[in-house]
Nucleic acid binder design. Structure first.
Lengths: 231, 231
DNA sequence: TGTACATCAGTGAACGCGCGTTCACTGATGTAC
DNA sequence: TGTACATCAGTGAACGCGCGTTCACTGATGTAC
């Protein structure tokens, strides 16, 4: 059935990369004849799309479960750490699937619209942590912090960026200040940047204490967003 | 000659990705017979290695030139902005080569040691900006800032991370405080994270004002490192 | 309980194609005398 | 100035291989009467 085909395809992904994913090789491994796969997938792109969707959803499931496991919802920093850690851990456990969704695009393949919603799950959750913290009064509007002249980040947001932020805010987390969403995006970028650089080999010979380093970076992002210190 | 082969190969990279780079297709485009390429490259991996080295060096050249164009060396923020902008602009102008070095690894290909030095050029330059700023007395040790209880980033560095930072500091920029290097790495990660997410499509439907957004993020990183405001 | 029939997962051959790499070779160019 | 020779960039055929996709098919399973 289609689940088994996808499972074998995931193994091949790990060995050969998405660009070289071969339907013949997959069916060969399953003891089937190559044409049999066409009963389950219209063509190679459709299999790739299914794998991409699955990967986004597997990541989303892992992150949501980790974040939800923090029972005391007022512990923002714990929620942030649980969610971001889950991303890194999922990526390390499933490097090929991570590369499939966050690595170089597969040449000649255009992701269909269905993947957009699944792709948004992880960033949406991170934004939700901040929005919830703001709603609970645990996070200040960063623009106010800056105005109070503490040596925090200064915001010179251009109109165009502000419009992007407003639109995204209305999608993901209505009511949240644009500046707070911006800091959430900074954390989001930092998180995927750190995971990608680690996974794609740029930390070799530089950072060896990788889990610790990652946690430290994510803590720094929590500081930046103004999350109160852990209890 | 080898330069022309590499030039044509770069075009193919853009169309088909590194995993599908074909020696036959390259020579066909040049009006040669496929075996002729073996006079110039021992095999396909050697051509890939040459392309990777070239890409790291082209990026390094672009970034170093942009940063060096800031004549007043005390304008740290201008240097930082010039260098980081150059990375993004080079990546947008050369997406296939960017993907080659910062995207998913090419399956079955192991980069030889020669690439390490070239790969280090860009991060080394960014670290150098901070080290130079510290030497000039323009940047404080972030650990002191935190100790002075300003609501800046707090540092709870574990021993292992501190050791990584110390080693890297001694390589790249002796004399610089570890905490300052750490903030430099945060900026480095943010920069490549932002460029990769943009280039690999994760900003679609989210951030449209991309140049402005990128500059804003890099400014935020400059704030975080404690760079004085632009004049 | 037994027969006729439809369904449909999987087969096997074939299509036209591309790939990396090897090997003995050709033929133009340049050098030595 | 003219001949003999070495160099070497590029040729063309061949090797063994893998690929996605199509198509008419087989044969087991399940349903209807």
């Amino acid at each position: 059935m289609t689940a088994e085909i996808k499972a074998v395809a995931r193994q091949h992904l790990a060995r050969n990369g998405a660009a070289n994913l071969s339907l013949r090789a997959v069916t060969r491994d399953m003891g089937m004849v190559s044409s049999a796969v066409y009963r389950y997938f219209r063509n190679r792109d459709e299999l790739l799309t299914a794998l991409i969707l699955d990967a986004y959803n597997a990541l989303g499931d892992a992150v949501e479960a980790a974040e939800a496991s923090v029972k005391d919802r007022s512990r923002l920093r714990a929620r942030w750490r649980a969610g971001t850690r889950a991303v890194r851990e999922w990526a390390l456990a499933n490097p090929a699937e991570y590369a499939l969704i966050y690595g170089s695009p597969v040449p000649g393949y255009a992701a269909p619209k269905d993947t957009v919603a699944a792709a948004a799950r992880t960033p949406a959750l991170l934004a939700q942590i901040l929005a919830d913290g703001y709603a609970r009064g645990l996070l200040a509007d960063p623009a106010d912090r800056a105005a109070a002249s503490a040596p925090g980040p200064s915001f010179h947001l251009g109109e165009a960026v502000r419009a992007d932020l407003a639109r995204t805010r209305d999608d993901l987390a209505p009511g949240m200040p644009e500046e707070l969403l911006l800091l959430g995006m900074t954390g989001w970028i930092q998180m995927f940047g750190a995971v990608s650089l680690e996974l794609f080999g740029q930390f070799n010979n530089v950072i060896e204490a990788r889990a610790e380093f990652f946690d430290q970076q994510m803590d720094l992002m929590a500081d930046l967003a103004g999350m109160p210190p852990a209890a």
